[in-house]
């Protein structure tokens, strides 16, 4: 009981802090200096219609590389943690799952290609529309999740996933290095012509990089899902 009271007291203090922040908040009426720079220069320098994409992929491209690396390490640790070590206690027999049902099976067969297509559309158009590699990759992984829900015993090819992931990561870094050699810096997008604002083939290498990020993120999330679901499968094969 006293623990709960302490928790509530702590929350009250944090809540008071938040309330004073909220009460003292005055929204800006003008863009600040950084934002103004991005808003002014993006169209001319980068050629991407979506300013957020220009920031994520080119202005702060190095940070995005770091982010993708963090995601890669996470996927690797999830695989490592789940793969190693024997359970200390003997397995309690799991009851077999009920069948997933006609609706989900048929629905997943119809929807998965469409979901994958939407994911690809979202990351290819990342420089024009509110989308991009991370969002598209997450959509692709949600298609994989649907497949796993429809058939929990489905096995994804880990080899394919890891080849796809390392290849796109390697190409991402390779394009960055090419930017040093042939354009003005690491991950510079002016490796390819900037083109006309608002067209699919514009903004230099941004669509290429974001597609690679999309593939990589999709592969990483899929490998996390596959690893989390396969724990169950090994249980089942041990029982049978």
């Amino acid at each position: 009981m006293i623990k709960r009271a302490i928790a509530l007291l702590l929350l009250l203090a944090v809540g008071a802090l938040f309330a004073s922040l909220l009460a003292g908040y005055v929204p800006d009426s003008e863009l600040n200096q950084t934002a103004r720079y991005y808003a002014e220069r993006t169209a001319g320098d980068i050629g991407a219609a979506n300013i957020v994409t220009a920031i994520v992929v080119t202005y702060r491209g190095l940070d995005t590389l770091g982010e993708v690396t963090v995601l890669f390490i996470t996927a690797a640790i999830v695989g490592l943690v789940l793969a190693q070590g024997q359970p200390a206690l003997p397995h309690t027999p799991r009851q077999l799952r009920p069948p997933v049902g006609e609706l989900l099976t048929t629905g997943s067969r119809m929807l998965t290609p469409l979901i994958l297509l939407l994911g690809v559309y979202v990351f290819v158009n990342g420089h024009l529309t509110p989308g991009g590699g991370f969002q598209g990759g997450a959509i692709i992984a949600s298609g994989m999740l649907l497949l796993l829900l429809a058939d929990p015993l489905k096995h994804f090819s880990h080899q394919l996933i890891s080849v796809l992931e390392s290849l796109s990561g390697l190409l991402f870094v390779g394009i960055g290095v090419l930017g040093v050699l042939f354009a003005s810096g690491f991950l510079d997008n002016r490796l390819l012509p900037i083109g006309n604002l608002g067209e699919l083939f514009s903004a230099g290498v941004i669509p290429v990089i974001y597609s690679l990020i999309g593939l990589k993120v999709g592969a990483e999330f899929s490998s996390m899902l596959a690893n989390l679901s396969e724990i169950d499968k090994t249980d089942k094969t041990e029982e049978t």
Binding site: L31, A35, Y38, E40, T42, I51, V56, R60
Partner: peptide, 12 residues
């Protein structure tokens, strides 16, 4: 653009 768009940095 400077007068029309919101701050893109928090979104990134």
């Amino acid at each position: 653009a400077v007068a029309r768009v919101i701050d893109p940095v928090p979104q990134a």
